[in-house]
Amino acid sequence: MTAHDADCERCEELLQGYLDRDLSPAEVVVAEGHLDGCDYCRRRYRFEERLRRYIRISASERMPAGLLQKLAELREQSPGAQL
């Protein structure tokens, strides 16, 4: 299953750049003009936004307890600490 028509295909190509805010002003006009009238693409853009947040949350793991202390100790040991 692919996008509905050539305009949807163009919109699909602009998806990442749009969400990254990396499109030229002319491309933004193309994307937003199409999204205004196309539920199909608009759903997919929203989905992509949610997906990005979900990936970030799923893949983010806090630093283990104790690591910060170990790093702080490296400070004292590094040569030059003794001035």
């Binding site: 299953m1 692919t2 996008a3 295909e9 699909e12 998806l15 990442q16 759903r43």
Partner: peptide, 12 residues
Amino acid sequence: EGDYYLANKLAA
């Protein structure tokens, strides 16, 4: 696949 691939699969 294109950028809509996963969304299309989910929709299907």
